[in-house]
Amino acid sequence: MTEGNFVDYVKMHVASGNGGKGSAHLHREKYIQKGGPDGGDGGRGGHIIIKGNANLWTLIHLKFKRHIKAGHGAHGSSGRSTGADGEDAIIEVPLGTVVRDTETNDILFEITEDGEEKIVAEGGKGGRGNWHFKSSTNQTPRYAQPGIPLEEKEITLELKVLADVGLVGFPNAGKSTLLSVLTSAKPKIADYEFTTLKPNLGIVKYRDYQSFVMADIPGIIEGAAEGKGLGYYFLRHIERNSILLFLIPADAKDIVEQYNILVDELRRYNPEMLDKERFVVISKSDMLDDELKSEISTILDEDLEADYMFISSVAQQGLTELKDKLWQMLNE
C-alpha cells in the first residue's frame, strides 16, 4: 500500500430516511359504500449503519464520499398494506475505526470485529394508519400519523491501526528499513526525518506458514502528547498494537534517555499504553564492534527498564532472533 493511499481520517454528513406516512384510507368495494378504515402503516426510514470489514485496511474508499443518505420509507396504502422500509445505507470500515460526533467530538462507538454493525443514524419510524385509531365512538377516523423525520449527523471516522507489533521510535530510527526487511511492505526510506508520514503495515512470515502483522508508525517527537508535529495522528495508531517494539539507533547520544522520553510521551497521551508489553531493539548495530556492544550492554543492563536486543536491518543481523522473540511474546 502506498503512503498516499493510506487514509485514516474522514469527515462525512450522514442522513437516515424519513418514515413513511400512514394511510387514512376508508374501505370501498362495489357493494360496500361505507366500509371502515383500512389505511396501512408507513414504512421505516433506512438506517445509516457502520459495519466492520476485516478485508479493509484504510478509509480510502470513503475519501470522496462525504454525503451518505439512506432511503425513505414508503407510505402506507389501502387494505392495511404497510409501506416498504427504506433501504439502509451501510458504510464498511476497517477494524479499529472510531466513530465520533464531529460537533461534540464525543466517541459514539468503535468497530473492532468483522461483521460488527452499529447504527449511527436511525431511520424515522413509519406513521400508523387510520385503522389503529378506530373505536366505538370514532368508527371512521379520517386521519393517520405522519412518519417520523430523518436524523442527520456530522460524523468523523478515525482509523487506529490494528497490528500485533507496533514500531515506536524517533524519526529516522530505522523503523521503515526494518519493516521492509521483515515483510513485503515497501515503505518510503530516506536519510532524513519524517520520511514516513502515514503508518505502513506489513505481514511478517514466521515458521510453519504462521505470520503476524507489524506496523511502522511515523516517528514521535518530544512533545507529541501535547500535539507537537502530528503527535495526535501518530500516537492514536499505537493504541491498537499488542506489543510495542521500541527502535533506538546505536549512534544515539543516550539510548536510555531516548527510551525514557518515548515512554513518557506514551504515558502522557494515554497511561494505559504502558500496560502493553515492550521490547527494545538497538538498530544500526552493524556500526558497533564487540567492545562497544559490551560497553553499551553494561549501561543498558543497569539503567534500561526493558529487555533489549542488538540488530541491523541492513546487515541482516539478529533478525531471526527478533522474530523468535516477538512470536514468543505474542503467544505467551
Rank of each mutant, 00 (worst) to 15 (best):
M1E: 04
V10G: 02
H13G: 03
A15E: 11
G17N: 10
G17M: 07
G20S: 02
G22I: 06
S23F: 02
S23C: 14
Y31H: 13
Q33E: 15
K34Q: 10
G45I: 02
H47F: 15
I48D: 08
I50C: 08
K51L: 12
N53H: 03
L56P: 06
R66K: 15
I68W: 05
K69A: 00
A70M: 09
A70Q: 13
G71W: 14
G71T: 09
G73F: 04
H75S: 10
G76T: 05
S77G: 00
R80K: 10
G83E: 04
D85I: 12
G86S: 08
G86W: 09
A89N: 11
A89W: 09
I91R: 13
V93M: 07
P94I: 04
E103W: 01
E103D: 09
T104S: 15
L108D: 08
L108A: 11
E110N: 03
E113D: 11
I119P: 09
I119C: 03
G124P: 06
K134G: 05
S135K: 07
Q139P: 04
P141F: 13
A144R: 06
Q145K: 12
P146E: 14
P146K: 15
E151V: 13
I155Y: 08
D164E: 10
G169P: 12
F170E: 07
A173C: 10
G174T: 12
K175F: 03
K175A: 06
S176I: 13
T177A: 07
V181P: 05
S184K: 15
A185I: 15
A185P: 06
P187W: 06
I189S: 04
A190P: 10
D191W: 00
F194D: 08
T195A: 06
T195C: 07
T195I: 00
G202N: 05
K205D: 06
Y206F: 15
Y206M: 09
R207F: 01
Y209S: 04
Y209R: 04
A215K: 05
A215N: 03
A215G: 06
I217Q: 03
E222A: 08
A224K: 13
A225R: 07
A225C: 12
E226R: 07
G227I: 12
Y232I: 13
Y233N: 11
F234M: 13
H237E: 02
I238H: 01
N241S: 10
S242N: 12
P249E: 14
D251R: 07
D264P: 00
L266K: 11
L266I: 03
L266Y: 13
P271G: 12
D275T: 11
D275Q: 05
V280F: 00
I282R: 00
I282W: 06
L288C: 14
D289N: 15
D289P: 04
D290L: 01
K293R: 15
S294E: 09
I296Y: 11
L300P: 03
D301K: 11
A306E: 08
Y308L: 06
Y308P: 01
M309Q: 14
F310N: 07
S312D: 14
G318D: 10
L319M: 12
T320M: 00
K325S: 02
L326K: 06
M329H: 03
